[in-house]
């Protein structure tokens, strides 16, 4: 009885598999996948943004940043991206009373220029596709810190932007200086519904108060925005002292669009938006 596969066919199959395996390129620099290549420097590019913003937040101006390249030599020492705040010695967090929040806008009023305008001159191309969350868009933001019970402004609270690790201190009005904050749009919603605002998170620290984590600050292009962080004093009756979370919701206009987008004719629920 003739058996299948025969020894000859097994040998032939092994030889073919070897040829195919040798044909696979191992040097990714010669690969034609430019999309994957463009993402290689993405993290380093974001790091460059952090440095630039942190160094220029005093004036509120950003300098053009060249696209970062993969570090060729890891042995070369590089300055840390952010330094821990030392009172009176740091360059990103300011001591109370010396901040000049209106420096870049002497009138103190908002100068809205809404609309989908192109990014400001000098903003380089992001390292990855914008739909994946890579962005160089920034907008002016100021954080206002208050006591959650008395609603009085808190001076000297330290505010950290989670995404960029920028650190600021609040002045006697409870405000941080205006600073450039990135506009991150959640990439998972991008293919479904164009997200109408980005989101950002901050943490506020102050001695004697619970840490406050404020997530989902709405970020729009081309306008100035403010967000208020509520902090709660630690009292003698407090056990298990843990951070307080405040999650800012999506704008309800966006939620209406999202629900309408996926509504089926056979299951209309509350029905489409109507007058």
């Amino acid at each position: 009885m003739k058996r299948f596969p025969s020894a000859r066919s097994v040998l032939l199959a092994c030889a073919a598999a070897g040829v195919i395996a040798m044909a696979i390129p191992v040097d990714d620099s010669s690969s034609s996948n430019h999309h994957a290549q463009s993402l290689r420097g993405a993290v380093a590019t974001m790091g460059q943004i952090q440095d630039t913003v942190a160094n220029n937040n005093a004036t509120g101006n950003r300098t053009p940043v060249a696209p970062a390249k993969p570090r060729p030599n890891q042995a070369v020492p590089t300055p840390p991206r952010t330094n821990p705040v030392q009172p009176g010695t740091n360059n990103s967090a300011k001591p109370p009373g010396t901040s000049t929040p209106q420096q870049s806008n002497p009138s103190g009023t908002a100068t809205p220029a809404p609309g989908n305008q192109p990014p400001a001159a000098g903003q380089a191309t992001p390292a990855g596709p914008e739909s994946w969350g890579y962005t160089r868009k920034t907008s002016k933001l100021r954080i206002h810190v208050i006591d959650g019970r008395t609603k009085q402004p808190l001076e000297g609270a330290e505010v950290v932007v989670i995404e960029t690790e920028q650190r600021f201190r609040t002045d006697k009005n409870g405000d941080t200086p205006w600073f450039d904050a990135p506009i991150f749009r959640n990439p998972k919603y991008r293919p479904m519904v164009a997200e109408l605002h980005g989101q950002l998170g901050v943490i506020a620290y102050k001695n004697g108060y619970r840490d406050s984590i404020h997530l989902g600050i709405r970020m729009h292009e081309n306008i100035r925005q403010e967000a208020t962080v509520w902090m709660y004093k630690i009292g003698p009756g407090d056990r298990r002292i843990e951070p307080v979370l405040y999650q800012e919701p999506y704008h309800h206009l966006w939620l209406i669009q999202l629900a309408d987008k996926f509504r089926q004719q056979s299951q209309i629920g509350e029905g489409p938006e109507r007058p």
């Binding site: 908002a110 306008i223 100035r224 403010e226 208020t228």
Partner: peptide, 17 residues
Amino acid sequence: TNFQHFQDLSSQPTTNA
């Protein structure tokens, strides 16, 4: 949204203007 969506201390410079 029974009436209008009010959120304490949520004002923004552009809307205030």
